[in-house]
Design a protein around this nucleic acid. Structure first.
Lengths: 145, 145
DNA sequence: CCCTACATTTGACTGTGTCCAACTATGAGA
DNA sequence: TCTCATAGTTGGACACAGTCAAATGTAGGG
């Protein structure tokens, strides 16, 4: 039984080729859109342990299932489609390049979630603080873009 | 010449009925979607100083023009359409209710933008930090939603 | 008053994601 | 090993937000 199978079972999900393929694809490509996940899964279709392509609906089902059990996180930077990444134990944030759109993980420097004080204003009860830094990635900054 | 006309002129934009109507609508309704802006502008169509409804394209053009000159800010909370609000001088963030979707302003407590230290990681040059708190608004928390 | 650059409209189109109903595979218990 | 309920998958239609391109209208300086 592969690691991925064990992982899925431990979360109460059946181990299916598509779910394993999506997890594998996300392990290799962080911060990808649903379309890119589909493409990566398609790649594996040609390799060993062949996986048939999965339908759009199937893809969203898999991603939602994995998200629900905490194996996958998604972010939606303004102006871009939903991006998916594996959920590690950490509570990190993201830096998005305005020029090329690249997304980079940023370790949370203030502690565990919510890692910023909740706004005291008006009785709002916060359970999560999401931070996105906007700017230029190293490559784009160097190229003067 | 109205205040709004003067404001638009000062930013180098022509003063048109639609632009004034959009500014007026945003002054009364913060954090609204493009569709809601259109509806609010439509309301004014029946009142005095009648404004004809504006097309979808016209609406996006107006919003983009106003955004470009700094009169309007937009935010895109995950799972919702772009929300627009007037740009005041301050650098505030937002708290979004998971239950009813209400958005509330949160004054930036850490200073001026970027109000959080830029990530030192890998040469990324940040020019803005965007923070969103997720949780329950006062009303929803009280109602146990 | 009249021109011209700027503003607006119209309608088709794209990308991303959801809904629904039918179909197929899986695996736990008999 | 068989059966069947449940979980998973598929395809097609659809909804929503936003964009593109080209034709038309208008604000405001001369």
């Amino acid at each position: 039984m592969s690691d991925l199978t064990a992982l899925l079972r431990s979360k109460g999900l059946r181990s299916t080729p598509h779910r394993r393929a999506v997890l594998h694809a996300l392990a290799e490509n962080p911060h990808v859109t649903a379309v890119e996940v589909a493409a990566a899964v398609g790649e594996q279709a040609s390799g060993p342990g062949a996986v048939s392509e999965l339908s759009r609906q199937g893809l969203y089902n898999v991603l939602e299932d994995l998200r629900r059990v905490g194996l996958v996180r998604s972010i939606e930077p303004a102006g871009s489609a939903t991006l998916f990444e594996l959920q590690h134990g950490d509570n990190h944030h993201h830096a998005v390049c305005r020029s090329c759109g690249a997304v980079q993980d940023v370790p949370c420097s203030v502690g565990s979630a919510p890692c910023l004080d909740a706004p005291g204003t008006g009785g709002f009860v916060a359970d999560e603080a999401e931070v996105v830094w906007w700017g230029r990635c190293a490559a784009c900054a160097a190229a003067g873009r």
